[in-house]
Design a protein around this nucleic acid. Structure first.
Lengths: 136, 136
DNA sequence: ATAATCGTTGCAATCGAGTTGCACTAAAAG
DNA sequence: CTTTTAGTGCAACTCGATTGCAACGATTAT
């Protein structure tokens, strides 16, 4: 596992106190985190600072965002080597019971063939259901 | 093409004035519509009435909703025979230029194999890029 | 036919995630 | 050390979504 500092260096994002703690938090969670999740976890860091940090991270492909339909955008650290290209697509799983969102790196995304003259840029693919913990 | 009245009857949703015009509007559009789209199109119908109508339609599987990442949930009439089961899944295409959302009924959805003990209920799959009209 | 009941509608108010302006502070450049 | 630039915290605001409530309409019971 890379350290926060290493990741920021690789992605050419200046290291600051807020950025380090936000990234550390994201790395420490196995589920994608919402702004509110992060805000709650980092009690003394301002919401707007976290918000702008997430925007910076996303622009620099440190993290990717997921619209899981919960009404809150969630964020997860990109896998090593990810460029957020269509080739880096992966499914996400949203548990309708516990509201948690997982990255499904192991579930292959098929080759998406769009209609004539459509251009693929990116995708947001969320599969919903019950996670193993809630499916009992 | 079925009439509004026929669809509502089949889906066991009572027919009212607002429901008829909302459904008629949805049927008349080839792109998925947001609450605001519908509100603008139906000048004399209240937003909350449309909102509740859409909720009713969704519960009764008259329409399905799409979170395309634009910040506004969009709605489209279900295809004939659709039960909003996983088997009825289809991709959606969101044009990042004109902000329109299309249902891609012709793009096959692969068999989704989830991790052990996860249960699939539904999905929201949005592919983003440029539509044929904007890709020039 | 009239009264009671229940779902639907319109209006206004509210909620909450996201976003921005601004002043202040810290870091980088000169 | 001084100047410039970037980052942070606070407060206010935006806007889509949602709800409380009263009025209305249709349906059912009396």
């Amino acid at each position: 596992m890379q350290s926060e500092e290493e990741i920021l260096k690789i992605k050419k994002v200046k290291n600051t106190a807020v950025r380090t703690v936000v990234l550390r938090h994201l790395l420490s969670q196995e589920k994608a985190q919402s702004l509110k999740d992060i805000e709650n976890a980092l009690a003394y860091t301002d919401r707007s600072s976290i918000f702008r940090t997430l925007k910076t991270f996303e622009e620099n492909k440190v993290i990717h965002s997921i619209e899981d339909g919960s009404g809150m955008t969630k964020y997860a650290v990109c896998a090593k080597g990810c460029n957020c290209d269509p080739k880096d697509l992966h499914y996400h799983f949203y548990c309708t019971n516990c509201n948690k969102t997982f990255c499904l790196f192991d579930l292959p995304v098929p080759n998406i063939k769009l209609p004539e003259n459509f251009k693929l840029q990116q995708a947001n693919m969320v599969v919903k259901g019950l996670c193993d913990n809630c499916n009992k």
